[in-house]
């Protein structure tokens, strides 16, 4: 007993250290990407990708250790969710950077990643590793063991994709304003082309939409597994449905009426505001879906 508790403390410590390493690397990466953008240096972001990649590995290890230490998938409280969303954004960014090289993107995204990781480090450990209402629910049977992590992972990855869509939407609007107002300042030179903002934004939106759809479906299945009810009319469930419908709306008009550019950028921003409300606001409204 003594030995195993010692191992647990040790694991807890190494997890914190790994997360701190990741935080440090993300911070250096964020500064580096700002410098790249500010000096208009043409140095490709290979160094940046290496930095962030190293941070990602440390971060992955931290999450892995947490998982085995706690014995359940570690995204059940705000501390863990903050860390996981940062991790998901980095994962998404790294995959995306295989195809797109947009300098402005890491400059906006990495500080965000840094903040999420920092929040996770600063938040105190919850008294219980598993919230009361999840007690037993996750480990009840094989289906719930799989379906709960799947639900949360899918939803959080869809949020990561929507963050990118949101950032692209904002970049689009700023760049469009520069072009229309004929104000060719710092933003004009540093932000990507309109078509690039539109393309990355829309791709991310499609990916996010698919992930969110699967996330909602797994959520419903899990609900049913737990208490036999598919839907609780919980604020978070309702908001998630609204989010889903907004993105469905954008996709629909993109495909049928060729909506793009400014209109899609604006709608993406609206969609993301609702995502934030779903994620953070539903907590304030209470309801049963409060964890995370």
């Amino acid at each position: 007993m003594l030995l195993s508790s010692r191992i647990l403390i040790c694991a807890r410590k190494s997890m914190t250290i790994l997360l701190m390493i990741a935080l440090l690397l993300y911070m250096v990466g964020a500064f580096y990407s700002i410098i790249i953008l500010a000096t208009k240096s043409k140095h490709a972001g290979r160094g940046l990708i290496a930095l962030v990649g190293a941070g990602f590995i440390a971060h992955t290890a931290a999450i892995g250790i947490d998982w085995s230490r706690l014995g359940h998938f570690p995204i059940v409280n705000p501390k863990e969710v903050s860390s996981f969303i940062a991790w998901a954004i980095v994962a998404y960014y790294l995959v995306m950077s295989l195809r797109y090289h947009v300098r402005a993107l890491p400059t906006i995204i990495l500080p965000l990643v840094f903040v999420f990781t920092l929040i996770s480090l600063l938040l105190p450990d919850p008294a219980q590793s598993l919230p009361l209402m999840l007690e037993g629910a996750i480990t009840a049977n094989v289906v719930t063991q799989i379906i709960f992590p799947a639900h949360v992972t899918l939803v959080i990855f869809s949020y990561a994709a929507f963050i990118v869509t949101f950032v692209c939407g904002v970049m689009y609007l700023i760049q469009e304003h520069e072009l229309k107002a004929k104000h060719f300042g710092a933003a004009f030179q540093r932000l990507p082309a309109l078509n690039t903002c539109d393309e990355i934004g829309y791709r991310s939106l499609s990916i996010g939409f698919v992930l969110l759809t699967l996330g909602v479906v797994t959520g419903i299945v899990w609900n049913n597994q737990r208490d036999g009810r598919y839907w609780h009319n919980d604020p978070k469930e309702v908001m998630a449905l609204v989010t889903w419908m907004i993105y469905l709306f954008i996709m629909h008009y993109r495909l049928t009426a060729g909506w793009r550019g400014r209109r899609v950028a604006l709608l993406s921003i609206v969609g993301f505001v609702v995502v934030l409300l779903t994620w953070l606001g539903a907590r304030a409204l209470g309801g049963y879906h409060v964890f995370g």
Binding site: S41, K42, H43, L179, Q189, A193, L194, N195, T196
Partner: peptide, 26 residues
């Protein structure tokens, strides 16, 4: 070339047209 912005901006009208087009179409 890589470390300064010396060659990065267009200084004649016809090159500016190219630069602008790239900011729209990539």
């Amino acid at each position: 070339r890589n470390e300064t912005g010396i060659g990065s901006s267009a200084v004649s009208i016809s090159f500016v047209a190219v630069e602008l087009a790239k900011k729209v179409f990539e």
